[in-house]
Structure formats: C-alpha cells, structure tokens
Amino acid sequence: MSTRNETEMSQARRLAREGGDLSLLRARVPYAAFLDVQVTLDQGVPRFRMPFRRSLIGNTVLPAIHGGAVAGFMENAAILHLLLLLEETRVPKSIDFSIDYLRSANPVDTYAACEVARQGRRVAQVQIRCWQDEEGHPGRQREIAIGRAHFLLTSPSDETGT
C-alpha cells in the first residue's frame, strides 16, 4: 500500500517538476483544484498563481477577492511547495497558519511564492508571500498578504505503516 502511494506521489511530483504539469499533484489536493491553483517553476523555484474568477469575490463594493480565498490559496501554495521540493510520500498536515493582510486583493490574478525557513525531522516552517501586479504596471508587484505556517511532515513510522 505505502509503496503504491509512494510511487503515485513521486510520479505526480516528477510530472510537476519536469513538465510543469500539476494535474496529478492537484488531484491529490482537491481544494487546490477548486481554487484552480497553477504553478510555474523558475529554475526549480515554484511560483503559484490563482487565476481571477468572479466567484472569488468577497466584497462586491470595492470589488475585492474574499480574504478567505486568498488565505486558502496561500495554504495551498505552502502545501504544494513542500510536495514539490521535499520527498514527502503524503500530503503534509497543517498545524497552524497565520496571515497578515496588507492590501485588499483586486479582481485580478493572484501570485504566491514560499520559502521553507526551517525544516526539521517532523516539522517544517513555511513563509508565504502573496502579491498581484500593480495596476497599469504589469510585473511590478503589489504585495497583498504575508503568511506563515507549520506543517507536520511524513514520519518514517507513517511510511512503514506502523
């Protein structure tokens, strides 16, 4: 059982790493597919994108993307970042997550990049930066939120099934 899972996960990882094809990895994380999270690899460094769609709106007056959707996107970015860079055999479990909102999220595509600040044997600490393009200045980043999260990594006992 664990061998099969390991194979499926490593196959999903290989497709994502080599061809930038996230479909198998996303199939393991349905909520990432719900938010339509995309990934591009720039010299091995993942950058995540949540394409804008109207149903992400949380404030119709501004309008702005729902803060929860931004947070959910950032948690997905952190999880996929760990799956892409580490050799995890299962989806890492979230322990906690904290987000600071800096600016409202405009109705455009949203981006995120992550950094693993600490990786222990059982726990990883991930920092997540989230931005959009500055209006009228494509490529200039407008930071909308920063986050951090702790994840429980696959333990050796999980792998052997004990």
Partner: peptide, 21 residues
C-alpha cells in the same frame, strides 16, 4: 472538492480558514 488529501480523505485546512474568516 473541500478535501485537502484525497488519499486520507481529510478536509483541507484552507476551506476551514475561509469559513472562519
């Protein structure tokens, strides 16, 4: 579609954050 781990069938913490927010 709320699942965060299709193998273990656990709900994604991100959707919990959305509801709580």
């Amino acid at each position: 579609e709320w699942l965060g781990d299709s193998e273990r069938r656990l709900i994604h913490t991100g959707i919990i954050t959305t509801v709580i927010d």
